[in-house]
Amino acid sequence: MSNQDYLDKLRDTIVNQNINGCVEATNEALAAGIGAVEAIENGLSVGMKIVGDKFEAAEIYLPHIMMSAKAMSAAMEILSPLLVGDENAGHGLAITYVQEGDIHDIGHRLVTTMLGANGFEIIDLGVDVPNEKVIEEVIKNKGKKMILVGSALMTTSMLGQKDTVELLKEEGLRDDIKVMFGGAPVSDAWIAEIGADATAENAADASRVALEIMK
C-alpha cells in the first residue's frame, strides 16, 4: 500500500462512520511510517470535510456526523500524544462555553467535538458560564494561540456575548484571541455590532470557520 492508500483509508473510515476501523487504520498508518500530523491533515481532516459538506447538503444527519466525530476522536486519542512538542501540530487552543443564563448545550457539544476532531486543543467550560470565568481562563492561557467559542440559544443570553468582547478589551486581551459566537439568534449583523470575529451556521461550518480565522 502506498502512503496515499493509508490516508485514503483513514478518510473513508471517517466518511463511513467506522469507529473501530478508524482506530485500526490509524495504527496501520503509523506503522507504515506516516506521521501524526500528516495522518490528521491529509487523511482524517479530509474525511471530516466531506462529512461536513454532506451534512450541510442534508445528505447525512445528526447521528451520522456524531458517529464520524466519534471515529475522529478515537483516532485523535492515539495521535494526540504524538503531537506533543510538534510546532506544526494542531490549530491552537479553543475555549468553548455556553453563555451565562443558558443551559442549551447540544450545539455547544457538537461544535466542541468538531473542533477537537479538527485538531484544536479543547478547554470546555460547560454551560451557564459567567463572563468573569471566561476571562479568567483566557488570562490563564495567555501566550497561546487561542480562539474563544461561545454559544447562546436565547436572545437574552446572547446579549452577554457583547459583554464578553467588552471585558476582553478592558483586560487588554482582545488582540490576543479570536472570538467566535454561535447559536440560533446569532447573526452576522450581531457579530459585526459587538466586534467579534465570526459566526457559523452549524457545527460542521463552525470547524471550517474556526480553521479559516486561525490561519
Partner: peptide, 19 residues
C-alpha cells in the same frame, strides 16, 4: 418541509425518511 433525520436510517417502503 424537510423530514429531519434525528435517527437518520429509518426507512419506509425501502426509502430513507430523513431528508
Amino acid at each position: 418541509e424537510l423530514t429531519l433525520g434525528l435517527h437518520g436510517d429509518l426507512q419506509y417502503d425501502g426509502k430513507v425518511l430523513a431528508g
